[in-house]
């Protein structure tokens, strides 16, 4: 019992002394997936997850990326990786590189960090850019419906 208390106390002391806000260790990763608009994906504000990816949501993804909403990489494993940097471009709040890649399927090589339930990705290199491969407009049209302005007569 005494040893258990000592052990718990040691762990507690370590926890108190540790800089909890310090950075977490990263691991090298290569992953393929789509550059998505995380707010629409997480919030459901524009519909379910399948409706806010791919070509159906491309225009909205451009708006959100240009608007400074974080982009993520929706991996083939189904996980969302919040993108903090793309190559030399650390402009994660509305930068040009992420705007150009909106809705594209890419293969990214970089570092994965995990903290407080989220995956963070620092991309060293975009190994492949396959363009938009998810033709979701076949199933969903466009989301939101006003993404394409009605043509003038």
């Amino acid at each position: 019992m005494h040893l258990k208390r000592m052990g718990a106390g040691a762990v507690l002391a370590a926890a108190v002394c540790a800089p909890l806000s310090a950075q977490v260790a990263g691991e090298r990763i290569q992953i393929t997936g789509e550059i998505i608009d995380t707010w629409c994906y997480f919030s459901g504000v524009m519909g379910g997850p399948e409706a806010v990816v791919g070509s159906a949501h491309h225009t909205c993804a451009l708006w959100c990326s240009a608007g400074g909403i974080p982009v993520g990489l929706l991996g083939d494993d189904g996980e969302v990786y919040m993108v903090l940097k793309l190559g030399d471009d650390d402009a994660s709040a509305g930068g040009d590189t992420q705007l150009r890649l909106a809705s594209h399927q890419i293969t990214a090589d970089g570092m994965l960090y995990q903290r407080d339930g989220l995956n963070y990705l620092v991309v060293s290199e975009v190994v492949a850019d396959d363009g938009i491969v998810n033709l979701s407009h076949d199933d969903f049209g466009v989301t939101p419906g006003f993404a394409i302005p009605e043509p003038k007569e």
Partner: peptide, 21 residues
């Protein structure tokens, strides 16, 4: 600065508007 908090890449001004906060 999100990139700073996660990786330790920490400019003084939180990225000056480029980075997520």
């Amino acid at each position: 600065d999100m990139l700073c908090a996660v990786t330790g890449d920490c400019p003084e001004d939180c990225g000056g508007g480029q980075r997520q906060i």
